[in-house]
Amino acid sequence: MSVQTKQLEERVHPMEKLLRMDRIPHIWCPTCGLGTTITALAAAIDQMKLDYDNIAVVSGIGCTGRVAGYMKVDSFHTTHGRSIPFAVGLSIAKPKTKVIVFSGDGDLISIGGNHFIHTARRNMDITVICVNNFIYAMTGGQVAPTTPLTAKSATSPYGCYEHPFNLPLLAASSGASYVARWTALHIRRLTTALKEAISKKGFSFVEVIAPCSTLYARLNKLGSGLDLMKFYHDNSEIKHGADLKDVDIEFQSKITVGKFVDIEKPTYLECLNANNKRVFGDKYQPYGG
């Protein structure tokens, strides 16, 4: 015991350089998958050897919205659903900054749904990490646009009867250049996917399936977050380049994970510069921040 205490004084956790330690321990429930996802992002940033001054993390509202407060890089906690518009402005003003939107399914896809599809259409050079826990967790477990059919929630006590969004299909059909989905358990593959997404030019989208023990698991009687992790272990099917029409998530069914889309395509700023060059010729000074 005394040896361990001594070592703790000498050494610090390797992720502490990317975390605001005055705010840790965080407020998330035990067995929540968000801390694991943050570790993956911090490991990705660490392994890519990025300059911390050139990274910005933007979050919206919700459990995942608190990520911006915990990451020790330039970060901003926006209003509900408006994380992508803020990130777009940041990305246009400072094109060399790696802008990472880290938010939840309710924030990005429900309230910010229109921003999401239009930013994917314009192929803005940002990375969007959507942590999908199938529910509005912070507000008490209401139905989200990703809640699977028949899953119970606070506002659907007899089971959800609305068809959920298929997020990879939505992102890919809107025009994203990179689309992947992993669970919080596939931690190394998730880190690799985040590295690829951050270095990708254009709109990259990574969906992370994360356990919500306090609301989703409790309301559906699925046990704890650890039981959900075991479920991901037994029921995830890795299919790179799968047909996105088949990657729907049904209640407690197989989860198809993998890298679905990885294409090269001109970004918003490249299209803007190319078009203005075509119209104005040599008089036009290309915009690069």
Binding site: M15, L19, W28, G35, A40
Partner: peptide, 11 residues
């Protein structure tokens, strides 16, 4: 364990 820990409590 370090990667999976949600609370940055083990390494």
């Amino acid at each position: 364990c370090e990667m999976l820990c949600p609370d940055f409590a083990i390494y």
